[in-house]
Computed example of a mutant assay.
Amino acid sequence: MRVLVVEDDRELGRVVVSGLRSAGFAVDLADRLAEADLKLATNAYDCLVVDRGLPDGDGLALVDRLRRAGARVPVLMLTAMDAVADRVAGFQDGTDDYVVKPFAFAELAARVGALCRRAGRLRPSVAVVGDLEVDLGRRRVRRSGVLLALTAKEFAVLELLVAGVGQVVPRTDLIECCWDEMAEPMSNVVDAVIAQLRRKLGAPAVIRTVRGVGFVIDDVEEPAAGAPVSR
């Protein structure tokens, strides 16, 4: 899941970005509305975390423009403006959630995750594929009832794969949704994480490679004859 944070306070922005990345999100940062507009024009995001008092305007102006253009990306307003009137204005302009500074980071990460799932890409709270169970809310994975220890990035990749069981997820989609601007698209980061996931998930394998396309997760132990797939 990829998130755009729009925050002009450099220290707070760094903390929010670092924390969300540790929670498994791919995160980009913009410190002005103009920069946010540019990133939104070139990247697809599952959620926005937006401050209100930005150097070139109110964060609500960004939300208003997005809604007028028909964009449905969820927006969480993260601001020190805590008056009831401010919150009401935020919701009236299309904000989906509103968190007041100072805040508990665990709550912020949970709210961002809930908004990403609500957007439609990841709807079920628990995904089950054969004997594999992925609890998206609690971020826990079990195979045959055994709790597995996954890194944040491994969980993010698995989360996207189980969102469309039986459907091939292109490598480019994994890069776009699970990595941020710090990733090198031509590197082998995807293959490395997939290899780690396969090792931790164990046998029989549930992640298959579709050569030249991407990856698919299902409970089929062996591919159909002639299918261009490999383990």
Score class of each variant (00 low, 15 high):
Ala203Ser: 05
Val128Met: 03
Arg171Ala: 07
Asp37Val: 03
Asp131Ser: 09
Ala85Glu: 14
Ala127Cys: 04
Val134Arg: 03
Gly53His: 04
Met81Asn: 04
Thr151Arg: 09
Thr209Arg: 08
Val134Phe: 00
Leu150Thr: 02
Tyr98Phe: 13
Arg123Pro: 07
Gly13Ile: 01
Met81Ile: 00
Arg199Ala: 10
Asp135Leu: 03
Leu201Gln: 02
Ser230Cys: 09
Leu60Met: 05
Leu78Glu: 07
Asn43Phe: 15
Gly214Ala: 08
Arg198Asn: 02
Trp179Tyr: 12
Arg231Thr: 00
Val75Gly: 07
Val210Tyr: 01
Arg65Glu: 02
Glu181Val: 15
Val17Arg: 03
Met186His: 14
Arg65Ser: 14
Val129Asn: 05
Val100Arg: 11
Arg21Gln: 15
Leu122Thr: 12
Ala85Trp: 01
Ala225Tyr: 02
Ala149Asn: 11
Ala163Ser: 11
Leu148Thr: 04
Glu181Asp: 12
Ala119Asn: 13
Gly166Arg: 10
Gly214Lys: 06
Arg87Ile: 06
Ser230Asn: 13
Phe25Ile: 12
Thr172Arg: 12
Arg143Met: 03
Ala80Tyr: 12
Gly120Phe: 03
Gly145Leu: 07
Leu132Trp: 07
Gly214Tyr: 10
Thr79Phe: 06
Pro223His: 07
Phe91Pro: 07
Ala34Thr: 14
Val50Ser: 15
Val193Ser: 05
Ser144Glu: 01
Glu133Tyr: 01
Glu221Cys: 00
Asn43Arg: 15
Val88Thr: 07
Glu221Leu: 04
Val162Trp: 10
Gly59Asp: 08
Val49Glu: 04
Lys101Leu: 12
Glu35Gly: 05
Leu33Trp: 11
Asp37Asn: 10
Ala61Glu: 14
Val129Lys: 02
Gln196Glu: 07
Gly120Arg: 01
Gly24Glu: 04
Ser18Asn: 03
Asp56Trp: 06
Leu76Gln: 08
Ile175Phe: 03
Gln92Ala: 05
Gln196Lys: 13
Ala89Glu: 11
Arg143Tyr: 01
Ala227Gly: 04
Gln92Arg: 14
Leu4Met: 12
Leu136Glu: 05
Ala195Cys: 03
Arg65Cys: 00
Asp56Asn: 14
Phe155Glu: 14
Gly59Ala: 01
Gly145Lys: 12
Leu66His: 10
Gly226Ala: 14
Ala85Phe: 06
Ala163Thr: 01
Arg67Met: 13
Asp219Val: 02
Val162Phe: 01
Ser22Asn: 14
Val193Cys: 05
Gly214Cys: 03
Ala23Asp: 15
Ala119Cys: 10
Cys47Ala: 15
Arg2Lys: 11
Val128Tyr: 00
Ala36His: 08
Pro185Arg: 00
Leu48Met: 13
Glu221Thr: 04
Ala224Asp: 09
Lys200Glu: 12
Ala36Gln: 08
Leu160Val: 06
Lys101Phe: 09
Leu122Asn: 12
Ala110Thr: 14
Val157Met: 04
Ile175Glu: 07
Ala61Leu: 07
Ala192Leu: 09
Asp173Asn: 05
Leu66Pro: 08
Glu181Tyr: 09
Trp179Asn: 01
Asp82Arg: 12
Gly226Val: 07
Arg123Phe: 04
Gly13Ala: 05
Glu181Ser: 15
Leu66Met: 15
Val16Gln: 09
